[in-house]
Computed example of a mutant assay.
Amino acid sequence: MTLTARPKTNRPRILETARKQVLEDGVGLTEDQLVQILQLPDDALPAALQLAHEVRLKHCGEDVEVEGIISIKTGGCPEDCHFCSQSGVFDSPVRGIWLDIPELVKAAKETAASGATEFCIVAAVRGPDVKLMNQIKFAIDRINEEVDINIACSLGMLTQRQVAQLKDWGVHRYNHNLETARSYFPQVVTTHTYEERLETCAMVKDAAMDLCCGALIGMGESLEQRAELAAQLAALEPHEVPLNFLNPRPGTPLENQGLMDGKDALRAIAAFRLAMPRTVLRYAGGRELTLGDLGTREGLLGGINAVIVGNYLTTLGRPATADLNLLVELNMPIKELQKTL
């Protein structure tokens, strides 16, 4: 799908409206207003990013949360998410691998040593079975014995019982992404529905666990659908939104999708912050290619207040030291560990 062309004229009025509505009153922009932010011309982009940064500082504070992630089960997933190289449906080079518990503990230690306060255990599954849940419980116990770090999980769609188990085991945050707008979801996933994802998100929130619910943009959605996604996430009120940019993977249906334009990515960062003034907005996958070093810096000064450091599940990220050094350079304090387990 071709992205909607941006108008050539500046639209300062929407930024004036956002300053009053979001910065001063703390009320996120509506879907129609977000379209206007995503349509801003290049010469208005610095002002939009500056406003988003001011919103972040006022409503979230100056701290930046750092997280590391690792997969306990990689590849072989039965779902057909068109962007994902871990799907067993496509001819992808990623094959099924299980990580043992000592490797998980080692990864948690390395994550904590990098300055991260959060360690997320991920599995490429539709949802966890009894075997996987038992492994997760054992892994959590071993990590807690040796590492002082908050533990999160991302294990696909859950049952009510599984939500309760994770809560009892001390998992304080669960990740389950919407990925894209409701109207575009059938173009990206056919093996489960948007509503099924929402059901897991609702159960997590009802259990008083932090909900981490992210977006993947640059998959061919229109600007209107990008705004739709931001508004739908805002309505869900997650604690955290990881913002991913498509990194086209070989063997997937989106392997030939071009990289998202860096300025469009920055417009999206500003829009998501102005949609959700109090939400943790985390840099996630694909930013290295889409934004590069300069864009990464601009995003941190444009509404981002959390970062995944190191590598992702199947792709390389920036070295953790590069991100940590950048945070120091920008005088952005890393959030202190607040143990919840």
Score class of each variant (00 low, 15 high):
Ala5Glu: 15
Arg11Phe: 11
Glu16Tyr: 03
Thr17Gly: 07
Leu23Trp: 02
Val27Ile: 10
Leu34Ala: 12
Leu34Thr: 07
Pro41Thr: 12
Asp43Pro: 13
Leu51Asn: 09
Val55Cys: 06
His59Arg: 14
Gly68Ser: 03
Ser71Asp: 05
Cys77Lys: 03
Pro78Ile: 03
His82Asn: 09
Ser87Met: 08
Arg95Gln: 08
Asp100Val: 00
Pro102Ala: 10
Pro102Asn: 09
Ala108Gly: 08
Lys109Glu: 05
Thr117Arg: 08
Ala124Ile: 01
Pro128Leu: 13
Ile136Lys: 11
Ile136Ser: 14
Lys137Trp: 13
Phe138Gly: 05
Phe138Lys: 07
Ala139Arg: 06
Val147Tyr: 15
Ile149Cys: 14
Cys153Glu: 02
Gln162Asn: 05
His176Trp: 06
Asn177Tyr: 15
Ala181Cys: 08
Phe185Trp: 02
His192Ile: 01
Cys201Trp: 00
Ala202His: 09
Lys205Val: 00
Asp206Phe: 00
Ala207Ile: 00
Met209Val: 00
Glu221Gln: 10
Glu221Arg: 12
Leu233Pro: 04
Ala234Cys: 11
Leu243Gly: 01
Pro253Trp: 05
Met260His: 02
Ile269Ala: 10
Arg273Asp: 00
Leu274Asp: 00
Met276Asn: 10
Arg287Thr: 02
Asp293Met: 05
Thr296Ser: 12
Glu298Phe: 12
Leu300Gln: 04
Ala306Leu: 01
Asn311Pro: 02
Tyr312Gly: 14
Asp323Asn: 09
